[in-house]
Computed example of a mutant assay.
Amino acid sequence: MEREELAAWLRLAMTPGIGRIGARRLLATFGLPQRLFDASPEALAAGAGPVAVKALESEPKGWREQVDLTWHWLQADPATRRLLTLADPQYPQAMLQTEDPPLLLFAQGQPVHEWPRAIAVVGSRNPTAQGRIHALQFGRTFAQAGLTVVSGLALGVDGAAHEGALDGAADGQLATIAVVGTGLDRVYPSQHHELAHRIAERGVLLSEYLLGTPPLAENFPQRNRIIAGLGLGTLVVEAALQSGSLITARMALEQGKDVFAIPGSIHSPQARGCHALLKQGAKLVETAQDVLEELAPQATVQPAARIAPSEQPLLRAMGYDPVGLDALVARTGMSAASLQVALLEFELQGRVARLPGGLFQRIEQG
């Protein structure tokens, strides 16, 4: 992309009062932004209307500075940094099929000549121990089956899904896509600096927001339409009733895509959003294989082996909800001392998590 072309796209994106819908209408009428800004006042008035003409006649505030910032950002690492416009042949085709595709997509990471089949995985920023393990395991299995995992780089489920995909992806495979709500020159949350670096090495970071954009609350629900748009379907691992994950699920449904939800304990606030989705017709899943079987007609995926249930009596007695020591004594007939030893061993193996309040939870997938 030449600097003049970059400047025209940024000017269109930054012009107040135009918006994404208005910008797409102008592009449909005039073609590329350079033609729009080169058009005569008479042509603009005929094709854009008086409101758009007035908005377009002045340079947006901060536009020249943004052109400089973006140009230097792109030139600093042209092998991994790109600005994808609606006119770019490398723009994700899946987004072009949605009602509200971004005008621009800043991308950092592996070059993508053809966007792969993907599954969106979203959920709570404060998941249970089991929820985090689910996100990790589902993300890993999806990657092993050849799907790219899309999520939002948030704490909790999002981060775990990205990590699982990075662990499960084969060499050369686009492991995961992180769609963020800030400019790509910053990482939010800051705890995910290392994870973002790993994604840039083996996946892609995407944002529709200009460089320098801070983490504004109103941007995150907007970016969720991109997460939903890039996936063949959306899996919700855990979610409260009022959460961004349910926004993503709604957007996926509006795009005519499948929504999957993992059920949880009726006592867990993090499960209520998933249960609400299931009541509304989302597909209940217990394993990653359930999702892969549903998506098989749309994507070539490798089958994932089901995990055999554990034969450990203690693990069977625990179930998958948090449970206290006294309840386990009653269920198993074991002494408290013997249970403490067995639970410690399972904890060291990563099969049981110790929770606040003297509770334990099984975190292996059975």
Rank of each mutant, 00 (worst) to 15 (best):
S190P: 00
G319L: 09
L284F: 04
S265T: 10
A239P: 03
G233Q: 08
A170S: 12
G62H: 10
Q130K: 05
L216H: 14
Q361Y: 09
T234P: 01
V301D: 02
F360Y: 15
I307S: 12
P127M: 02
V122S: 01
L328D: 00
R354L: 12
R223N: 09
K54F: 01
Q242G: 00
L26C: 01
R132Q: 15
H197Q: 15
A143L: 02
A175Y: 05
G172N: 12
R140Q: 14
G233P: 05
A288V: 01
G168I: 00
R3L: 12
D290N: 08
A52R: 08
G203I: 02
R351D: 09
A87I: 00
R198S: 14
G31W: 07
L84P: 01
H193N: 11
L174Y: 08
L277R: 03
Y188S: 02
P116A: 13
D321G: 00
G366N: 09
G131A: 06
A261N: 00
P221F: 09
V180E: 07
M318A: 03
G244F: 05
T234Y: 02
H197I: 00
E238T: 04
T148H: 09
L241M: 13
A336M: 13
R82E: 13
L195W: 09
R132G: 15
A296E: 13
L56H: 06
I177Y: 04
T234V: 14
